[in-house]
């Protein structure tokens, strides 16, 4: 009995030393969500790669993709990944207005990205290259659209979080949430880099 108590006592001390923050557990959980998202995207990427030449006599990537727009999207998303990092830095220094400011910049860049992508999709559909035109286009819209949907959901989350930060300030809860959204945002940037490489760059090669 005494041994168990002593053991427990040691254990508690160990835990204290390793500062067990409930937010740390949430971060690990969120990583596992991101990994499940990697698996989702791996299926969509496979589908696209397998079907990319099945254009059914319709337009292919070389005819459809306009690189200037895609390059803008890329640099906008890269910059927003950087600014979301700056937001977490401001948070760690306890600067609330700076934190919200960087989140606003990140959200505006994210909205610009979604706007450009929607614009690109609308153009393609108007040119007769819609979702149902060919297997290539079905897989293209599913893959790129799923990423765009992720960014849009992230935007809604970010706006909600900015409102909460405005009301409650930087607390343990909001701190955890900012950490998670910035992880999510960096993750979406990584997915986009592979979209750029595999869909667009290899499409126009």
């Amino acid at each position: 009995m005494a041994q168990t108590v002593a053991h427990k006592g040691n254990h508690a001390a160990d835990h204290d030393h390793g500062h067990h923050d409930p937010n740390d557990l949430k971060v690990v959980g969120f990583w596992f969500f991101l990994i499940s998202d990697v698996i989702l995207f791996s299926v969509l990427f496979s589908t696209f790669i397998v079907l990319r030449n099945n254009t059914a006599g319709g337009p292919d990537g070389k005819e459809l993709f306009e690189l200037p727009g895609v390059i803008w999207e890329t640099f906008i998303l890269l910059t927003s990944s950087f600014t979301s990092g700056l937001a977490t830095l401001a948070m760690n220094r306890g600067k609330k207005s700076q934190l919200i400011g960087w989140l606003v910049v990140t959200a505006i860049l994210g909205a610009a990205f979604v706007g450009l992508e929607v614009n690109e999709f609308v153009k393609m559909v108007n040119e007769g290259a819609g979702f149902s035109r060919s297997a290539f286009l079905s897989s293209f819209f599913t893959l790129v659209g799923t990423h765009g949907l992720h960014v849009s959901v992230g935007l809604c989350w970010m706006i909600g979080l900015m409102i909460q930060l405005g009301r409650r300030g930087i607390t343990e809860t909001t701190k955890g949430k900012v950490t998670l959204i910035s992880l999510y945002w960096h993750f979406l940037d990584v997915i986009w880099i592979f979209l750029l490489t595999i869909v667009y760059l290899m499409g126009v090669m």
């Binding site: 990697v38 698996i39 791996s42 299926v43 990427f45 496979s46 589908t47 790669i49 397998v50």
Partner: peptide, 8 residues
């Protein structure tokens, strides 16, 4: 990821 993409 490698299994799914490579295998496909």
């Amino acid at each position: 990821l490698v299994t799914v993409v490579g295998g496909s």
